[in-house]
Design a protein around this nucleic acid. Structure first.
Lengths: 127, 127
DNA sequence: ATCACACTTCGAGTGCACTCCAAGTCAAGA
DNA sequence: TCTTGACTTGGAGTGCACTCGAAGTGTGAT
């Protein structure tokens, strides 16, 4: 079972443009196969890999690090320690970022609280 | 007590470049006052506002929405309901984004787990 | 057969948020 | 007095990640 670029876009949540861009930019493990008329065919292995790429991208990994990770995978299983290190470093940054955002969100919540209590006050006064 | 742009940069974690950029772009409530030789002087009210701006920015609010928020504040207290709506909408997006990132982080953690168990296996075999 | 349409490539364009540069001003210290 | 260095301005440049356009080709329905 293989899929056209439109189907792959559908299943990955990316656009066809972005899928071509990722391929050009070396984010995929290997170039996608083409059918007899030159069109891309994505198999399950590609979709699985692209899913991992979207996890990395959605958590803020830069394109060049995803490319680096793909290169490591391409280079064979001797690079597994390097891949693990790369993922660990990324994980640490993501956890830090989550904490930072959560903290800033708290400040925004306090601001919201201020506006709400002021709105409340006005409601009472005008009642 | 007022501060030079270098001190303001220090206290806000932004660069002097960024502080000037924010001012030019209308993210501050009013232009920063200048001393007799034309240099910016930041008072506590400015620093407090910039702190709020960094909370909004750090949680992913686009510059144009921060500007919109600043415009509402400038327009007086009749806009408090609008400000509250803006903050609520932002809060919702941030919470969603946190959930999304957390979920993707889980997938990355599972990937890390796979590499770790493989590393573990190799360690056992080579022992 | 013709038509619409999804696809191809290469390269250019976009939007965002800074980030930097050049040229000039001013104040304080040696 | 001279120099150093932090500042000023307007505008240009950068990096990232797409996003789109133009021109062309192959496929499937009418």
């Amino acid at each position: 079972m293989s899929h056209s670029i439109a189907e792959a876009a559908d299943r990955t949540g990316l656009t066809a443009h972005t899928l071509r861009y990722y391929e050009r930019d070396g984010l995929l493990l290997r170039p996608v196969e083409r059918d007899s008329s030159g069109r891309r065919r994505y198999d399950q292995a590609h979709l699985d890999w692209i899913h991992l790429v979207t996890c990395l991208r959605a958590t803020g990994m830069p394109i060049r690090d995803v490319r680096r990770y793909a290169e490591l995978v391409r280079s064979g299983e001797t690079t597994e320690a390097d891949r693990l290190a790369l993922l660990h470093a990324h994980r640490r940054r993501v956890v830090e970022e989550l904490a930072r955002v959560t903290e800033h969100l708290g400040a925004i919540d306090r601001k919201i609280g201020i506006y709400e209590s002021r709105a409340e006050e006005r409601a009472v006064v005008s009642a």
